[in-house]
């Protein structure tokens, strides 16, 4: 089967004090090639853990991940990752960062150069190719991260709050860019976010997770991502369903947060 299968994943961390945290419990999900999934949930509900398991950085204590039919057992170039911040190599120029994956595979220099140039044009960094990454602003650095990931042509792109550290304006521009890249490249994308608006805009499918144990609480199929491609995202937000869904999800998350607070007050 072509696509990503998350099959009954459970994750239980043993703690040094003898206790244990059930970070994920029986999480199952199938993603077809080219689907855009956003994941939302209160802090500590296991989003990062799930993404790390899909990326292959963590071995789950139950279940398995399959990509295009093969079981995932570790990190590999078929699943690219975009981190929130600080995952660029500051000892390399923008160009070398973006060309890192191809370099590792030993792609011929000319071919790599062409590819890197093209991607830097796509993310709008054509004038910053030879700069050091630490000379760029936060938003530009995230563009480099995206380009670096795309340059390696992974089947699945995993993003853990990639825009979380950006200011509101830059963030909005980057959301447009993510949509554009998704449509142009047809990649399967999982995007974790803290922002309900971002989850609505950047998810054909939206997963709301609940904590303790981390599990899928509710799934939505949304039209906004498709509408947002190449359009003004502020127009998309005027869609009648947008505000309604947003309120519904916000209430859901507020309730969860309140339950968490209540529970920790009880145990305190």
């Amino acid at each position: 089967m072509s696509g990503l299968e998350i099959d009954n994943i459970s994750m239980r961390f043993e703690l040094p004090n003898g206790g244990a945290v059930q970070a994920l419990k029986d999480v199952s999900l199938d993603l077809k090639k080219g689907e855009l999934l956003s994941v939302l949930g209160p802090s500590g509900c296991g989003k990062t853990t799930l993404l790390n398991i899909v990326a292959g950085f963590l071995a789950p204590t139950g279940g398995e991940i399959r990509l295009n039919g093969g079981t995932v057992s570790g990190p590999s170039a078929d699943r690219g990752m975009v981190f929130q911040q600080g995952a660029l190599f500051e000892w390399m120029s923008v160009r070398d960062n973006v060309g890192f994956g191809p370099s590792m595979k030993g792609m011929p220099a000319a071919e790599k150069r062409e590819k890197v140039d093209h991607l830097l044009d796509v993310v709008g960094l054509q004038d910053f190719k030879e700069k050091a990454v630490y000379e760029l602003s936060g938003g530009m650095q995230q563009r480099v991260s995206l380009a670096r990931c795309l340059c390696n042509e992974p089947d699945v792109i995993l993003m853990d709050e990639p825009l979380g550290a950006l200011d509101a304006l830059t963030r909005e521009k980057m959301q447009g860019l993510v949509l554009k890249l998704w449509k142009e490249t047809g990649k399967t994308i999982i995007l974790i976010t803290h922002s309900v608006e971002e989850a609505l805009l950047l998810g054909e499918r939206l997963l709301v997770m609940a904590p303790r144990p981390g599990r899928i609480h509710r799934e939505y199929r949304l039209p906004f991502a498709e509408l947002g491609v190449g359009a003004d995202l502020r127009e998309v937000k005027k869609h009648p369903d947008y505000a309604k869904t947003r309120e519904e999800i916000l209430t859901m998350i507020w309730d969860m947060e309140e339950e968490i607070m209540g529970r920790s007050e009880e145990s305190a």
């Binding site: 590999s76 699943r79 990752m81 981190f83 995952a87 190599f89 994956g101 590792m104 595979k105 995993l158």
Partner: peptide, 15 residues
């Protein structure tokens, strides 16, 4: 070394 850099490199196919 930040673990995210190492993770990124692995995901980019580095040995």
């Amino acid at each position: 070394v930040k673990i995210s850099k190492v993770h990124a490199a692995y995901s980019l196919g580095a040995s």
